[in-house]
Design a binder for these strands. Structure first.
Lengths: 209, 209
DNA sequence: TTAAAATTTAATCAAATGATTAAAACATTT
DNA sequence: AAATGTTTTAATCATTTGATTAAATTTTAA
């Protein structure tokens, strides 16, 4: 049962917020609508009154989660006025901020796709992403050639940035256990990475500064 | 329903194999014991006859999955007769092999821990891992100092290797969609990474060869 | 071959869970 | 205030699902 603050927050919004929290934590199959109702502090029937079904509510959470995963990033990467180096700095920073606020987000999205691959083939938003990605890759390629950067598929670089940034969040409990770090130390470790990842990526590319 | 081959494979083993496949794909909550029974081609009651409960069977799968995730790696990293450079090469290779055979393994382990963190705090095997990890870090530190490698927490390097290697598998469907690769092209991409990741890691460390 | 043990099956149970319903409480409009 | 529309509640339904049972079948041992 969540705290009963803020009467001014609508029931609909309370359910939405609770659904984000519980779905991202437990996944679709592991979430009971009663968990969401409890977390939101509302009667179970209200969930179906406002959102019709568990599936419908889940779709809203998933669609918004997918957007969060990509929208900010694509804006940065699509900006034609920034150099590769600047793109790397900004992209890592905004991703770090996103993940610090939503640590469960990537594992939620990825494992829902894994457990039900067909369902997400046609997921809204994804088709557009491909076109954007093509553009970025092309732009990166020419920029990299112009800067005399050693020949490498730019898609590897995007995956490397995502890997180095996202994985430590996806593996948070594992990382904490293996390194015997408490929450503060873990986030200190993350902040070190915020500084280091752009350096690493650039050293991979052979960029000096 | 799976193929009914090999009468010589015991029912117990058929259930075990099916449980690995389904649990790793769908997770604990998303798996119905009937799914496992169907996949194994056996009567549902046999699952409980041999393994007593869904939980018991899951624990076996999870324990073995955790072992797979670490055992091979720790043997490589703990070998005191190899240089950092050799350790990196071997570790990436064995992990790639593991992941190509079990692409769903990392996401399964990580998301089960995420959805039920308390349950795995005391998981067998994990406590020993910490001690091993300490040893590796220490050895790496002295080796890195001796080799004049720039000062960096060796734990970052371990996390970087894991990130660059594991993430593209955890995000396989995403990677395939975003890059419009079919399965062959995806695995070609993975094989490129098998070659590139050790190079990248070494370039992060300032190792030339 | 026969008796005992192990394995397998079909049928069923009980609890969990997504969803609905009808009535109650509350808010808004006239 | 009365009527009307909206939101909330408690109770209940129907399905799914993990587990059990008792009988049937197969295997093993004597």
């Amino acid at each position: 049962m969540a705290e009963d603050t803020n009467k001014d927050i609508s029931t609909e919004e309370k359910i939405r917020t609770a659904a984000f929290k519980i779905f991202q934590q437990k996944g679709f199959a592991g979430t009971r609508t009663r968990d969401i109702a409890d977390e939101a502090g509302i009667n179970l029937a209200l969930l179906n009154y406002y959102y019709r079904s568990k599936e419908k509510l889940f779709e809203i959470v998933m669609e918004e989660s997918l957007k969060q995963m990509f929208v900010r990033l694509l804006i940065v990467l699509n900006n034609p006025d920034t150099s590769i180096s600047e793109k790397i700095d900004t992209a890592v920073n905004i991703y770090m901020n996103l993940l610090i606020e939503n640590p469960n987000l990537p594992l939620f999205v990825l494992s829902e796709i894994q457990s039900n691959p067909d369902k997400f083939k046609k997921q809204v938003g994804i088709p557009n992403l491909y076109m954007d990605c093509i553009g970025i890759i092309k732009q990166a390629k020419t920029q990299m050639e112009n800067a005399g950067i050693r020949d490498i598929d730019p898609f590897h670089i995007i995956i490397n940035m995502a890997s180095l940034t996202i994985f430590p969040f996806a593996a948070k409990p594992m990382v904490k256990i293996l390194s015997k770090k408490n929450d503060n130390e873990y986030y200190q470790f993350i902040e070190e990475r915020r500084r280091l990842i752009p350096i690493w990526i650039k050293s991979m590319l052979g960029i000096k500064k």
